[in-house]
Structures are given as structure tokens and as C-alpha cells.
Design a protein around this nucleic acid. Structure first.
Length: 464
RNA sequence: GCGCCUAUCGUCUAGCCUGGUCUAGGACACCGCCCUUUCACGGCGGCGACGGGGGUUCGAAUCCCCCUGGGCGUACCA
């Protein structure tokens, strides 16, 4: 057990998205690797936008990915007294002040500053005022104006900003609610977080938060800012690039290990290795090989990884997932062939569970109609003899393994003088209704003697 | 606009710190060939990058500077 304490702190204003999931993953991996503590904190100070549904969705997605946490979830909305006390502390020590400027005034100031080529930051109108009129006000933190603020980022190295660039941040709104940049400081400190791993988009906040850590007498934690994830057009990843919600990928038939593997390799590497299990990652992950620049989300590679995990996955487990999917579609799976055997025939040809479920369907539902074109070609009266021979030989089998089935086909070929190329397509259409399926011997063996003979007879009866 | 960050194949990246072993390696995608009863899998091969310009050096993807591109921030959002 090390003393490393990291945290993931999502704001519950939507689903867990790809970027957030990677941040959570990095935190999780480092915590597990160093045997530290992973804290989950819900940042719900934006009362208007935070919802319980979002919290549930985030928790669910983390669970799906296998990211367990050691402490929390803590809700900032439960901790308002703490924040209030800290505001008063700062007010008392003169490190914060009441600001009576209205939103309109602020907007005007910003515009003016921008117009004159300056930084659109608060001009400090209320900074030195000593009266405290009975009017609505916000509380601002008195950011130092001289010198600079610097820190050594564990990923990006040294980052320095002149304090003159900084703003007097609002730490408490007119309605009395504290703001993000303030509570994040208090919570990270009070929760003993000593390494903050978060998105790149927070580097600017970090230099604004550091003076607050100091003002409140807290030790400044270490920081590691992971680069953003962009869309194909190099713009920040958003809905218009396709699905950005982690759980949307579950719906699309992706396996969590594929998502984890993909996410970790976006921005992190370990030599030429591409395939990592969670256990591998816990052993090998390090902030040292996290890249410094933004990466483009590549669905093709995610799909490739998913394909890999489907190909190498445990048929039993895959079977359970496919069963779930088929049942949702109203397919009765109970009386059909053994699901793991079904899965085995599909593992090499499905890229997603959705594809696998679609490909598995015929095992449980006899074709109600044949593909028109295929039937015309492979189920016409010319195939009468083939079907009859097939029924005869397959029906006579005492054992129905792939080898036995193959043997029966050999006999059919011999007796009819036809090659497999002439027989296979007919069997395929008769059994599956389509021209695409796993290997014909496997299909026959897995489907089972009873169903095979029945479907062949039905096909025979349909000949015209 | 201003500030911060960043820059190797289309994409993810190795290499950069500790210059020569880099005619720059791997992976995804793409293309071709092989395998094959369908669809796939698989095997083999191919295409493809050090953003530009200056330095430093015998020698630079690797070190320095400038430019350019991209990202982020600039909220009483987080």
C-alpha cells in the first residue's frame, strides 16, 4: 500500500464519455499499480445541470469498464458547510472579497478589455473597497498580481504563467453556491489527493488553483494533465463525430476490454505492444510513457480490438452476452443448440456482439423465407436429389460431430458425383435461408441432426 | 485578441532526454497475392511520415531559435 491518492471527479451533467473514461482509467491504473487509493467524487456544484440520472449513468459505465474505486462517491453538494467555512476563512484573512459588479457590467468590461487588446479578465473594481453594502454580491479570491505561478506537470513538464494573466476568480456565486475552481481545491486537499490526473483542458485552471491551495494553507498536490481526445477533423471530440458515450459502445456490441485497451493506447504506449489486459496494464502502466499531444479517436482501431477480443474471448461468457442480446430481440434461445458451440462458429467472423447475435439467429429460428435469388439458384428442382441424399445420409448418422457430418457429406458427394461446391450452397440456403454462414460442416453439426433434417425436408418441399 | 500547451506515415505510436546502429520500427485503415464450399479468419507483400526555415555539429527525427499548423483556456460551466 503506497500513500498515492488519486481521484476521478466527473460532473454529472451527462453520460460518461470517451475522454472522461480515459481519465478515469489512467487514475485507476496508477492507483492499482502503486497500490494507492482511488477516490470517486461527484462534482455537482452546478445545481441546474447536475442530475442523479447522470450520476447513475457514470457509475454504471465505470462498472462496465471494470474501474472500481476505493472511496466515495463523495458528493460536493453534501459538503457545502465546509466550503462556506473556507470562504469565511478567506474573507476574514483578507484573501477574498465581496464583489458587487453585475453580470452586465462584467460583460461590458470584458468587451472593453478585449477591444483594447488586453486580457478579458476582471479589473478588480471591488478588490479594495472597504464598505459592504446590503446588495447581492459574489465572493472573489484575491489572486496574487506579482510574480508567476509554476508547477511541474508529470506529463507535460514545467508550466509557468505570469500572475498578471490570472483573474480574481469567483469562489462563491450570488446565490451562495461555491464554484468549481474553489471546491476542487478544498476537496483535493481535504481528501488527501496528492496526484491530480485530469484532462489537458484543466492546465489553465491549475495555475489558478495553486494560489488558492497556498492561501488556504494546503499542500499543493502534483498534477498530471492528459491530452485531449479529438475527432477525425482534429476538433474536440463531440457528438457530431459519432458516439461519445461509453455505454453507447456497449449497445453497439463492444466488449469492455476492447474499450479499455483502445483508450489506454490513445496517448500511452509500451514499446510495440498493442494488446493489453487489465492485469497487464496494472503492471505496465506509467505516466512516463503518456504522450503530450492530443490524439484522434479512431473507431476503426477500436473495432479491430473488439474483433480481437471476440476472437479470443471465452465462448461461455460471449454466449451469455449474445443470449442476453437475442432474448432482448425476442428470440427464444432455450431449445436451440448449445450457445457456446454457436459462439465458436462465429468468433472468427463477428466484429461486434451485435454482429454475432445477428449471425447466431438462424441457429434458433428456422428460415421462414429463403433469400429469393439464392433459392432460385440453389433450391430449384435440380437440387432434389442432393437434398434427398443429404437427408438420407445425415439422417442415418448415429453421432453428429463435425467429423461424422463431414463423412456423410463425402458419401453424398460420392453417390451424386458432385463436388462440395455444388452441394454446400444448397445446404446453406436450406439451413440458414441465406448464402452467408459459418463453415457448412460446423453449421450442420452445431444445429443438430433433428433441426438439420427438418430444415432439409422443408427445403425439399419448397422446391419448384 | 491575449495566455498556456503541442507538432514522426491518413490515424495511434516507437525512436528524441544520453546526436551516428533510422535507406525512421510497430499497429489500425487501405491495396495486392495466397488459403478457401459462402462470408470471414489467417499468411505473405505493398503504399505511406520526421510541418517549414535558420543555426550548433564531421554528423540532427534527435540540441537551440524563429515561423507555421493544431488544441485548450479566457463563464456567477466543470
Amino acid at each position: 500500500m503506497s500513500d498515492l491518492r488519486v481521484r476521478f471527479a466527473p460532473s454529472p451533467t451527462g453520460y460518461l464519455h470517451i475522454g472522461g473514461a480515459r481519465t478515469a482509467l489512467f487514475n485507476y491504473l496508477l492507483a492499482r499499480k502503486e497500490q494507492g487509493t482511488f477516490v470517486l467524487r461527484i462534482e455537482d456544484t452546478d445545481v441546474g445541470r447536475s442530475t442523479q440520472e447522470s450520476v447513475d449513468a457514470i457509475l454504471q459505465a465505470m462498472d462496465w469498464l471494470g474501474l472500481s474505486y476505493d472511496e466515495g462517491p463523495f458528493y460536493q453538494s453534501d459538503r457545502y458547510n465546509l466550503y462556506k467555512n473556507k470562504v469565511n476563512e478567506l474573507l476574514a484573512s483578507g484573501l477574498a472579497y465581496r464583489c458587487y459588479c453585475t453580470t452586465d457590467e462584467l460583460d461590458a468590461k470584458r468587451e472593453a478589455a478585449m477591444a483594447s487588446g488586453g486580457k478579458p479578465r476582471y479589473d478588480g473594481t471591488c478588490r479594495e473597497r472597504s464598505d459592504s453594502p446590503d446588495a447581492p454580491c459574489v465572493i472573489r479570491f484575491k489572486t496574487p498580481r506579482e510574480g508567476n505561478t509554476a508547477f511541474v506537470d508529470r506529463i507535460k513538464g514545467r508550466i509557468t504563467v505570469d500572475n498578471a494573466e490570472l483573474d480574481d476568480l469567483i469562489i462563491q456565486r450570488t446565490d451562495g453556491n461555491p464554484t468549481y475552481n474553489f471546491v476542487v481545491v478544498i476537496d483535493d486537499a481535504e481528501m488527501g489527493i496528492n496526484l491530480v490526473i485530469r484532462g489537458d483542458d484543466h492546465v489553465n485552471n491549475t495555475v489558478r488553483q495553486i494560489p488558492m491551495f497556498k492561501a488556504l494553507g494546503y499542500k499543493v498536490p502534483e498534477f498530471a494533465h492528459v491530452p485531449m481526445i479529438l475527432g477525425a477533423d482534429k476538433k474536440r471530440l463531440s457528438k457530431r463525430h459519432g458516439a461519445t458515450s461509453v455505454m453507447a459502445y456497449k449497445e453497439m456490441g463492444f466488449l469492455p476490454e476492447a474499450m479499455v485497451n483502445y483508450l489506454v493506447r490513445l496517448g500511452w504506449s509500451c514499446g510495440d505492444e498493442e494488446i493489453f489486459s487489465m492485469a497487464d496494464l496494472i503492471e505496465k502502466f506509467s505516466l512516463d510513457n503518456v504522450g503530450r499531444s492530443a490524439g484522434v479517436f479512431n473507431p476503426d482501431k477500436l473495432l479491430w480490438l473488439n474483433e480481437h477480443y471476440i476472437k479470443t474471448g471465452d465462448p461461455e461468457r460471449l454466449g451469455r452476452l449474445v443470449t442476453e442480446m437475442l432474448e432482448e430481440q425476442g428470440v427464444a434461445v432455450g431449445d436451440g443448440p448449445d450457445m457456446s458451440e454457436v459462439v465458436k462458429t462465429l468468433q472468427d467472423r463477428a466484429k461486434t456482439l451485435v454482429e454475432m447475435a445477428a449471425g447466431a439467429r438462424f441457429y434458433f429460428e428456422a428460415p421462414t423465407a429463403y433469400n429469393e435469388e439464392a433459392a432460385a439458384k440453389f433450391l430449384n428442382t435440380e437440387q432434389r436429389e442432393i437434398l434427398q441424399l443429404l437427408i438420407k445420409h445425415l439422417g442415418a448418422l448415429a453421432k453428429f460431430d463435425v467429423e461424422d457430418v463431414e463423412g456423410a457429406f463425402k458419401n453424398v458427394m460420392q453417390e451424386s458425383g458432385l463436388k462440395l461446391g455444388k452441394i454446400g450452397p444448397t445446404v446453406r440456403v436450406a439451413l440458414t435461408g441465406s448464402t452467408v454462414s459459418p463453415g457448412i460442416y460446423e453449421v450442420v453439426a452445431v444445429l443438430g441432426q433433428h433441426a438439420v433434417v427438418a430444415r432439409l425436408q422443408k427445403a425439399l418441399a419448397s422446391l419448384r
